[in-house]
Every structure is written in C-alpha cells, then in structure tokens.
Design a binder for these strands. Structure first.
Lengths: 128, 128
DNA sequence: TGCGTTTTGTTATATTATAAAATAACAATA
DNA sequence: TATTGTTATTTTATAATATAACAAAACGCA
C-alpha cells in the first residue's frame, strides 16, 4: 500500500516506540509485515534514513540497530549507552562534550558535521 | 598456510600500516590473498578482533572499516575523525572527554567498558 | 481525464559477519 | 615411534545487513 513518506516514517517510529530494546531494520520489517505482508526492505531503510537524518531516531552503529530518539531532537551530541547484558539502550544528552570535541577538531582543522558517541557496558539492573 | 595467531595479527597490522586510508576486512583479505590465495574471511576477522581488543587497531563502527592505532595504545578514548570527502581518518586522544562521559554514565549507574567516539566531517585539505 | 511526481515493490546483488565442520600442528603419553 | 588428545586454525557454507536499478502503481492536481 502506498503512503506518504512522512506517514511511513511515523509508522516506523511507532514500531520503534513500541519496543523497549533497539531493533534491527529487519526486525522492524518483520513487525510491519504482520499488517502489510508485501512490505520490502528498501521501504524500511528509506524511512529509517529519513528518521535518522531528522534526528527522530538514532542508529547504533556498533550494533547495527535503531532506537527512537527519547531526548531533545536537537541535541547536538546524543550519547547512547548500550548494555551488553540485556541489550537495552539509554539515551543521554552529550551537549557538554561539545566543547572538548570541538577543541579536538579545531586542533586538526577538521570540520565536524556529525558526532557519534556510544558507550558499551552494563546497565544498572545488570550490574549485580 | 597455518600461522601462529600473533604472527597473523602482525601480518594484518602490516597491511593496515601499508595503506593511508581505513580498510574493510575484505579489502585486507583481498590484499593478503595475493600472497595466500586460500585465506578466508574468518581468519582476517579473528586477527582483527584480537588487534582491536589489544588496542593495536581500531574499528570505525560507522563505516565498518579498520585503521592501525597511531596513538597511545592505552588511550582510554580514541577519537576518530573521518573525512567524508577523501576518506582519510585521523586519530586523536580523547582522554579529556572522560570526565564528562563518566559523569553521564554515573547519572544512570551505567558501568562503561568501552567508549566509541567518531566524528564525521571534512578534513583540512578537503575544506576549501 | 491525463500528466507529472512520488512511492513502492521487485529483483538482483553487494557487503559484512559468523556458525559449524573439518583439519593441521604439536606435545604428551605409551 | 606410533597414537592420542588438545588446541588453534582453516574451510565451507550461510546468515545478516544494506543498497542499486528500474518498472509499475497510486496520488495530486490542472
């Protein structure tokens, strides 16, 4: 079924919001296929690309999965904490990292457009 | 030909050091196959896993590629600047980010074991 | 209705990564 | 010096992730 891109994006975001763990693109696809059996991978990837470009979702580069943005969409530096035990992800605002990150970039005259900060470890409940 | 793991790791590191851009696992494999045609992907991945565990190489999660470590191997937080124009990567020491990163983790009682910091943008020579 | 645009599905394929099975090396033992 | 057990490594096969290319369908609007 054909939809407006914006609607498709909202659909994908709803799926992400309906789960408490990050989802891979194919997990999203499987979920959506329950209602729309013909849905294909490129449609999901297209929506995910738009969502991450807009900052409405984040891609966890180190585990190839996606979470909805739970913070301020304009946060310059999202910090994503990934629990290696239970797989949950918590998002934090890393705006305060920006000064030092900028200083590092300035040192090498690097013109930054995107910051990726991911932290692996164990969340509170998995730390006994 | 079968080799000691440590030797294999040195071989892979040499290949990385012989290039001035990050290499994917398969680029490394192709290069090594010139001398050892039977070499298979898992052999390269095993060596890369060991190298990154030891801090002798870094994986660029956002572009799925590897660089040799050019900094202090003990740097707690390597910061990898990736030029989206020419593809070069510069490594910097992000130890000074650690205080703020730790503060963020502490807020959520998260026990961090690994920090990933990557910066996308344009390097000096690509910024006209 | 007809035209241009957007979105989609389809197909095909590329790329990245790992699981599982098979084998080689080597030291210890008999 | 055969044989075995152990360990590490290779090989094969396949899983998982991602994208390119293009035709067809649906929509918006004149």
């Amino acid at each position: 079924m054909r939809k407006q891109a914006a609607v498709r994006q909202s659909d994908v975001l709803s799926v992400l919001n309906g789960h408490d763990k990050p989802m891979t693109a194919y997990a999203i696809l499987d979920q959506m296929k329950l209602g729309e059996p013909d849905l294909a991978a490129p449609t999901v990837y297209r929506a995910l690309t738009a969502l991450t470009d807009q900052g409405r979702a984040h891609k966890l580069e180190s585990i190839k999965a996606f979470v909805p943005c739970r913070c301020n969409h304009n946060a310059a530096v999202p910090v994503l904490e990934i629990c290696e035990d239970c797989g949950t992800v918590e998002e934090h605002d890393g705006t305060r990292l920006l000064a030092e990150l900028s200083a590092i970039s300035a040192q090498s005259s690097f013109n930054a457009t995107r910051h990726i900060v991911e932290v692996h470890g164990r969340c509170r409940s998995c730390t006994s």
